[in-house]
Amino acid sequence: MSQIQVLNLQSLDRGLPAITPAFGAAIAEAGAICLTEEAHKPGAALEVEGEFSTTFKLDWQPVTEQTRRCWNDEEYTTEQAAYGVAFLLILQLTNFTVIERSRKGTGFDYWLGSQDSTATLPFQRMARLEVSGIRKGNRSQINARVKQKTEQTRASDAQGLPAYIIVVEFSRPISIMSAKHNPEGTLLQ
């Protein structure tokens, strides 16, 4: 029997090509807040469904009172926390990494590129990532959000690049990871 892999939110403080260590640390804090406020403890299981079906253990740093005061806006905190979880899922389940923040109006949040440092163009835009967070929602709400975010990515479909849509719900916790294929029907991984 294989051991369940751990998604350590704190590892985001190392940064990614388009995520500074400071921003990574901040979204790790947001994730810790969402999970702690939903009565989870480090080691909680995150179920992943959709394009991938797996389970991860989540790990995070303890939440302090100062952290709670810093992240008092639930909607904003949930959105930032979802980015953190989504970035870790992309890193673990695909060959992509986050290479650039997208501009407003594109219909998605981040550009993805190859994790392979030997790739000819490792920072080439190869796929799109759209992320959404829900603090507490039922299955119908989660599925509706996946559909909404999938539709939202249509604004950039003409580029012909695949898109990942990741919705993270924190009360369960669960993540639905959907993949929208390019016109040729293939998904780069």
Rank of each mutant, 00 (worst) to 15 (best):
G113R: 01
Q80L: 15
T36D: 07
R172Q: 14
I99R: 00
Y110I: 09
L121Q: 14
C70L: 15
D116T: 07
A144E: 15
G133Y: 04
I19Q: 12
Y83C: 02
A25M: 02
V131Q: 06
I166R: 08
R69W: 02
A158M: 07
F87Q: 01
E38W: 03
D116K: 09
A163V: 10
K41A: 04
T118G: 02
Y76S: 08
I19T: 05
T54I: 07
A25T: 00
G15S: 04
W71K: 09
W111A: 05
G113P: 06
I90E: 06
G43E: 06
I27G: 08
W60H: 09
A22S: 11
V98C: 10
M1E: 00
Q189S: 14
T106I: 06
R128K: 15
R172N: 10
D59A: 15
T120R: 12
P162H: 12
P122M: 11
Y76W: 11
F96Y: 15
A127D: 01
P162S: 14
F123S: 02
L12G: 00
R139Q: 14
T78S: 01
M126R: 14
V6G: 01
P62A: 14
G43A: 12
K136W: 12
E29C: 12
E151H: 13
E184C: 04
P62F: 07
T55I: 13
H181R: 15
A86E: 10
A158N: 08
E130R: 03
I134A: 01
G185V: 02
G137N: 13
A144T: 06
Y164I: 05
D59C: 13
F108H: 00
E29I: 07
N143P: 01
W111E: 04
I19P: 02
T67C: 11
E75N: 14
E65Q: 08
F108D: 01
Y110H: 13
Q92G: 08
E100H: 11
R68D: 11
S11M: 04
A144Q: 13
E130S: 09
T78R: 05
E151C: 00
I19M: 12
S53V: 10
Q10C: 10
G50S: 08
K57V: 04
A25E: 05
T153R: 00
C34L: 10
A30M: 00
A28Q: 01
Q66P: 00
L88P: 00
G185D: 03
A39I: 09
S178R: 09
M1Q: 04
D73I: 10
I19C: 02
L121T: 08
G137H: 13
G133M: 08
N95F: 12
K57F: 12
A158P: 03
G24I: 00
V168R: 12
T97Q: 15
T36S: 13
E151W: 05
A158S: 14
R172L: 05
T64N: 05
L91W: 06
D13S: 15
I19K: 02
S140M: 09
T186E: 09
S53K: 15
Y110M: 13
R14Y: 08
T150N: 08
A155Y: 03
N8I: 01
L187A: 14
K57H: 12
A25K: 06
L161H: 02
E169I: 10
A26D: 10
A86Q: 09
G84Q: 04
T54C: 14
L16S: 10
T67S: 15
E151A: 06
L35Q: 01
G105M: 04
S102M: 13
